[in-house]
Design a protein around this nucleic acid. Structure first.
Lengths: 190, 190, 190, 190
DNA sequence: TATGAATGAGTGTTCATTCAT
DNA sequence: CATGAATGAACACTCATTCAT
């Protein structure tokens, strides 16, 4: 039930964004009454926050699966690969708030109870970089979180323009561009 | 008058975002009546679009002044420098839509008449990269627009987290991180 | 509920006319919230159209009951009688749009979805005349719809001035005047 | 100037009706400023009232010219003729408030300062009938004002439906129908 | 528990009217 | 006198939230 609502909410929020999404539409799609939604979620805001968390969790899981056991260099590649794929697969959602991913602007993190979540998300994923630095694969003077945000922001931004049709690139080109440019910049020697 | 309204609108939209901003609040701040706003702008949407265009234009101007006459490598540095400074100076605005910069998500570009604008903006600034490639300073296999978006997205993302206090970096660190990582990746030899 | 709203709307529209009637006033009178009105009627326009249709239907019903089984001559008398009585009984409504009856001006019939309605209404009631012509009670060269409109317009007009106190006549005088003048003009022999 | 405004007002009110007419549009058409309109007319209401009076006056003049020196029977014919012609010529105006003619409903006579006017208008034109009664051409038991209103209401109503295309009659048919039906009813002997 | 009808606060927009120039 | 920019009251309509059943 809660899950069914979350899925409907994900669909509607993805298509309409927070303000244009109607609770009644979500209820209809979830095949429950409006009242029922309010039994599980205190407010539209809370529901929205949960949708974002859910998506980020999915992505986090996919990323973790992808980088598991890999050395930092390969892990970075796997991360970039996974994120671009995830973006493509979840284009609808992505266009509205996947940008939230590494770049949570737009959404008032406080309002949706996401601040803590974001912090942890960034911290967790920047461990990849940290480990690379420890292993002296990556340069030692780098700020791990900064590097992670650099990569995720670059990816999100290029991919947004690609999805909107503003630039003409293939998903693979995006991956390669980011990897080529960034890896050389962070690897200890080349 | 038109200018006074635009400034008030900038302030209110920056603080509240499109949906939470109230026309009556903008009128109050601009010290004009609600009706007067509608003499100059057909709708809330149009006003919002104008605010964004104005800011982007300001930033574009600053960037152009900064990179004028410079060689590509120096131009990139100047670009990064200018953008980070602009972000700091215009933090309020930036938090809501300066992300729009290189990453127009969030905002429905069509709705606010910005699509064309975005396209041109990206095209114009990616000329820096193009020139660098022509002069064989940058690698020849790079997609200029992709590289520009990579840089602007990276900057916006890192700086957003910095401004929100989610990560602990100085503006200068942001600049240096981006330049160090990216330049190495795009320069023709290292 | 829908009925309660319609009754309140009838009252307010009758007193104020379309433009001066306020939805909030109708809601107050119907003892429902504004939102509830919009559950049943898409817009003020629609509500207004429904009020008119309802009244016309009532009158149509009364007229049909009155003329049922009667020969054309008696039917005309019954029609005139019924209409004048209805006007007196529903003076409030009548003053604003019962004129619509045979004379739909004022109201933009398209806007309120009434065109089709009006056409049918006239067609149906002019059957009385038609039958009289067939039975050779009325003159054969008469346009039935024209005669019906002649009678309904004459009635509405005289009665309006009477109700407004502009002329000094009793309801019965109105009936007799119209019948005396018109019947002689339409009967086959005198 | 006052005249120019009145003409523009007539045009706009005729096309739009009172509520949908904009003062600014009238000013534009009259090629004066909005402020100037308010120098001559205290309010939109007053301007509207003046437009109606002007039109009625025109029609009154035409009618008087047409019936001048004629015997009652011919005068009635001339009246019917003039009114139907006037309606055709001034169709735009007529559709909105010429109905006001004999049937002032719709318009709140008080609000537009028309009550007195209407009364006089009816009184003046019903003199035709009165004279006919005095001369024993028309039946003596008729209420003159009632007969006048009967004729004007009949005419307005039939002609409205004709102009709207709801019934298929020629202007001449309308005249003849009304004359044939009514004259027989009011003439002393036939 | 689930429902969904009812609520009513909230806001963009219009336009008659005013008044400083 | 004439102008037309500025005013701001007014109102239809929406939709998150509640609560009686």
């Amino acid at each position: 039930m809660k899950e069914k609502i979350l899925e409907a909410a994900e669909k509607v929020f993805s298509e309409k964004g927070f303000y244009e999404a109607k609770i009644s539409k979500i209820a209809e799609l979830a095949d429950v009454s409006v009242g029922t939604i309010y039994r599980f979620y205190k407010s539209k805001e809370e529901l929205y926050g949960e949708v974002i968390k859910k998506k980020l969790l999915e992505m986090e899981k996919e990323v973790e699966r992808a980088i598991e056991g890999k050395e930092p260099l390969e892990a970075i590649k796997a991360y970039v690969n996974t994120v671009v794929n995830f973006f493509s697969k979840e284009q609808d959602f992505f266009e509205i708030f996947m940008m939230e991913l590494g770049s949570s602007f737009v959404i008032d993190a406080e309002r949706f109870n996401l601040s803590e979540w974001y912090r942890n998300y960034v911290k967790k994923l920047s461990k990849i970089i940290e480990k690379g630095i420890e292993k002296e694969i990556f340069k030692s003077n780098l700020n791990p979180e900064g590097v992670f945000l650099l990569i995720s922001g670059a990816l999100a931004n290029i991919d947004y323009f690609r999805l909107k049709g503003f630039i003409d690139m293939e998903p693979n080109e995006v991956k390669n561009l980011v990897l080529e440019v960034v890896l050389r910049g962070i690897l200890n020697r080349n």
